[in-house]
Amino acid sequence: MESGQESRIENTSEVQTVDASETLADSAGATTAPVLEARSLSKRYDDVEAVVGLDLRVGPSEIYCLLGPNGAGKTTTIHLFLGFLEPTSGSAHVMGLDVAEEPLKSKTHLAYVPEQVMLYRNLSGLENLAYFAALGGKESLPTDRLTEILGEAGLQADAVHSRVSAYSKGMRQKVGIAIAIAKEADALLLDEPTSGLDPEASNEFSELLEQLKDRGVAVLMATHDLFRAKETGTRVGIMRHGRLVAEMTTDEIGHADLERIYLEHMHD
């Protein structure tokens, strides 16, 4: 974040303004090293400020939900962590590695589930998993273990060997999660993962995230779904015009509070 710039960071249901350099994780007294960390991260496209001075830390076993309208900078943030974009200023770090300086090394710790998990249609779920897991840099896993992982991710056993062209969006997302499990990723980046999923599939997905959280994975999820963010997330950040305008822990607020705070910021 540019020096001197102040961002309103709200903590819990009471509005609390803090300096942007002091994130909630800091104020909450998180002592563990962050898995994901943005330091004054900015990205500018020509005249558009997509992300402005973002400071963010996500530790192990945390699910951080980024809320915000379209164009708020959520996806850009995720792409900056993935190294898909080069920051205009500031830096993104994964397990302490500067993504811009060590893009490949930092990706060994990451798994990514986009809004639409697109896999090789002519290959089976198992073949896709075997490929992406191997590409992820882990030792080749035996087919039995890969099948087991697909099961852990919730894919039905009879779909494991079917071509992905026959998969629903939810099934493809399960393969995406399976890739993260197989890769033993330290951090999971999710971009609108539940958009377009029916409630049952969304619930299953949330359960999977809980399991990953329990394994110590740090999750950063961009979403429009306030309900899901409250239910699944451990912390929530609200972005608008590229800025993180509010941040809160979910166990200290109710659904109504979150909605109210969100709407307040959208109408500022």
């Binding site: 490949l104 697109m118 249609r121 590409l135």
Partner: peptide, 12 residues
């Protein structure tokens, strides 16, 4: 076909 995003999110 959308597979590039998943590919480039790997260390390659």
């Amino acid at each position: 076909q959308g597979t590039l995003a998943l590919t480039l999110s790997q260390p390659v």
